[in-house]
Design a protein around this nucleic acid. Structure first.
Lengths: 345, 345
DNA sequence: CTGAAAGCGCTTACAG
DNA sequence: CTGAAAGCGCTTACAG
């Protein structure tokens, strides 16, 4: 055991100890050809003995690549903690980053403008090699910024929102349609949707799809309301929907995430309505939360971890210069549980 | 508007445009004395016109500091998404980092050993200027690693767990004691605790405090069980507790987080028990989730965002070379809601 | 108050 | 298959 010297050991020390040049050490650690097996071994042994690892800062400066990818998230902090979606998404991203010894630079921001500015700073400061972009809005400023800078990105969102950037997306329109058809097939006619933040592109897509599906099925009693994704907003929306006269009241409600569905379930219970006998509830995203309620919540489920992994994989493609176009991931599928049933009328 | 040149602009270009040396530009951007107001202005104008920002990679190499702090989290990904605690904690950390233009490097890992190794890699690779350490275990290897490397850290955990590292901690023992006393004051004698992962130091502290409090109050029917913090485990533990014969069954249950309390509430409902008439439930951490259930959950509440902010502040102190010792943050306080009441016997 | 030079720790052609 | 040199974009003494 060699004790760690108090002064930092550098590539020079390793080269000296192995009896080679700095260049040779560099070749060995970057797995490049041009070294004999024996030399390579000597170098790695010397490095191990000295406890040396390449200084990634220096490597970035000298080379070109940066082993860090960015992720900015623009949602109120209080709400984020309650969206199981994000942490699962991040864990999926991480699972792929780790294979590339790459790290995730995370930042919570307050506006898309700030988000666009941060992207530019990070890129100009060479802090990131690429970035993941989520929560697209109409005319999102990040599209132009990424294009102008030549920043490698992967946009999480439908191609219609992400202006030609490389994208990975979920077919929300199809999923919403399936949700509505399922409830209609159970016999529901008055179906409501408690949607997410109206400013987000994917909310708009779901809203349009819901309208279309309701029209095609001739559902006169269909209605929608936008919220901010919070449990409190979901509760409020549900309360307002359920206080209508029984003959106008929806018999089924679809939610845009699962936290609002959980809140909606409480409201229904508190109002003395039985779920699913009096009202059916359908959640979205389907985290573990949906299996913790009573009754359990039916949901449109989604492999969020896998989604994150696919996004990371696509980003590496973009950084390497490949990966263009749009990459759909599997559409959320209906998972019926205890909160949906034919209406009892 | 100057269009952005396709080749990267550097400090040299800015210096040339402002008619000064690179050193002068450096002084200006680091807010160091030694430049006339006029020169400073010229430099900033030139930088703005060229759209230049310092390359942080080069700055780190040349200087000493690194504007990135690390955070490793060792919990199963699936569970993380459901712990509102983490995202709120991270958002608190971010709120302080932003003031220092500092970024957060996040990594999910699978073991403390991996965590300790990662810390060493990050530090040796000069990727971080310091790190936040959470979820301490008995004989945690990170204590030695941080000490040996001289890595500036702040350990989130009771001083008895963090081996002399600078620490920020919550007085869990006092909070547990308050929880037990409150339930006892309501008249409960058979109180159970559904704890978190046994391997974690703070779980051990809570377990010991619960035992002591129960003994001091002469609560013969007190019992505890360890879980993995997941809703599923919380549900299982609750079901097992509540299937006991009525005269042995606990009349109150304290949980180590709120997701398990939510799961416990469902189980009680599903078993036909009324909350709080038949059994009182007390959650921990108190995210928004506790206000979304029916009845709402009483909880030991905690400013998790503020906790994260304090941790980040302390870390900056440690990086600057100050900040030693242990820093307690406010103890969680009891927030009574609809899930606790005197036992109906 | 300012300029020229050395150096941070690597990588990358380019010679040998 | 290996070595010596230049350069990545900054900061920091050290002269002037």
């Amino acid at each position: 055991m060699t004790s760690t010297p108090s002064t930092r050991v550098t590539i020079k020390d390793v080269a000296a100890r192995a009896g080679v040049s700095k260049g040779a050490v560099s070749l060995a650690f970057n797995h490049k050809p041009g070294l004999s097996e024996a030399t390579r071994d000597r170098i790695f042994r010397a490095a191990r003995e000295l406890g040396w690892a390449p200084n990634l800062t220096a490597r970035s400066l000298a080379g070109s690549r940066v082993d860090v990818v960015g992720l900015t998230v623009c949602r109120p902090a209080r709400m984020l903690g309650l969206e199981p979606f994000y942490m699962e998404f991040v864990s999926g991203v991480e699972s792929v980053l780790i294979e590339h010894s790459c790290s995730l630079l995370l930042r919570l921001v307050n506006s898309v403008e700030e988000e666009a500015g941060l992207l530019e700073s990070w890129w100009k400061a060479r802090q990131i090699g690429g970035s993941i972009l989520v929560d697209f809005r109409a005319d999102d400023p990040r599209v132009a910024v990424a294009g102008r800078l030549g920043l490698p990105v992967v946009a999480v969102g439908h191609p219609s929102l992400t202006g030609g950037l490389t994208s990975v997306w979920t077919d929300d329109a199809t999923a919403v349609t399936e949700a509505v058809r399922y409830l209609a097939a159970l016999g529901h006619r008055r179906i409501a949707r408690v949607g997410g933040a109206a400013a987000l592109g994917h909310t708009a897509i779901r809203t349009a799809a819901f309208d279309t599906a309701a029209r095609e099925l001739g559902l006169a009693g269909a209605s929608q309301v936008a919220t901010d994704f919070s449990g409190a907003a979901g509760a409020r929306a549900t309360r307002s929907l359920l206080t209508a006269a029984p003959r106008d009241r929806p018999t089924a409600i679809v939610y845009d995430n699962d936290i609002m569905a959980v809140a909606g379930l409480s409201v229904a219970t508190e109002m003395g309505l039985r779920v699913p006998a009096d009202v059916s509830l359908l959640a979205w995203d389907d985290s573990q939360l949906c299996r913790l309620t009573h009754p359990t919540l039916s949901a449109m489920s989604h492999d969020v971890h896998g989604f994150g992994a696919e996004v990371a994989r696509t980003l590496f493609g973009a950084i390497m210069g490949g990966a263009h176009g749009s990459h759909p991931v599997p559409t959320p599928v209906l998972t019926p549980r205890g909160s949906t049933a034919p209406p009892k009328v």
